[in-house]
Design a protein around this nucleic acid. Structure first.
Lengths: 143, 143
DNA sequence: CATCATGATGATAATGATTATCATTATCCA
DNA sequence: TGGATAATGATAATCATTATCATCATGATG
């Protein structure tokens, strides 16, 4: 099997930390990157049950956290709702437009935001690492 | 007692919804607006115990939600941590620089962000209502 | 001012998401 | 291949928040 780019990065991270490669980890990564929407741990768990006999919910959660650690997954959390995860390729960052009616997420990206972040931070003697911008409103379909 | 501006707004909201004015509500609002930092419900509860004999935790939580409803309080939530609340005067909006080391919140406000929000939204047929920007990094004291 | 319908409170249980525990299994290096 | 130990899976624990419910307080009414 030829490793996909994310899979290779995952293997590298695992090796660097002295962790082990497992079938579950492989499948979790694969399922996350195959998903077309932002999935919850539970949804991912349901998908994986049919592929990996006996896989446990805790394993999915644990490895989503691991993927988050190595920058391959990002968590999006709205209010007290269950966290959703999205695959992250490379270093590109994007923000979200979140529809309050249907819950849809629209991904957006604007380089001006990065500049604005740096400016705001610098003015306060703050060293920025990352940011999270969520714009709430109504999407076109729900208007 | 001369009502403060927020207290008047609170009374108005309560009246409009057919709710009742209570000593607890008054004290919760007052304590929130007296706090110098972003407080958790628990911290507010501890402050209030000495002022209002027998006040319950649930009452504080309930009324923080009520204050949020009528725009007098704003909730800030980082990861899985306990929610923090800040008093909100009028309609001014601000965002947060959040220090990953000491947990300090710095409030910032830049009108360019509002324009950026509107631009991003319009480009996606999205009607924006509000946004939340959190910039994570290291503050000057923790550098 | 007294009555009373009902909203609010306070104590506590319930909920729900996430994390910790632990016995067992699987990985992978020597 | 053996063995040290990380990972897994099942489940319990945790923790913040919300729901429940008996009792109390508010405020409109007479």
């Amino acid at each position: 099997m030829t490793d996909s780019q994310p899979m290779a990065a995952f293997r590298l991270h695992i090796a660097k930390k002295g962790l082990r490669h497992t079938k579950q980890r492989e499948e979790i990564l694969s399922a996350l990157f195959s998903s077309k929407k932002h999935v919850t741990a539970e949804e991912l768990f349901d998908i994986l049950r049919s592929k990996v006999a006996g896989i446990g919910y805790a394993t999915v959660q644990r490895n989503l956290n691991l993927l988050r650690e190595c920058g391959l997954a990002e968590e999006v959390k709205i209010g007290n709702q269950k966290a959703r995860y999205e695959p992250k390729r490379g270093k590109e960052h994007h923000d979200h437009l979140i529809c309050l009616k249907c819950g849809r997420f629209i991904e957006v990206n604007d380089p001006r935001l990065e500049k604005l972040q740096d400016g705001l931070a610098k003015a306060n003697g703050f060293a920025p690492l990352r940011h999270k911008l969520e714009i709430y409103g109504t999407c076109a379909k729900c208007a």
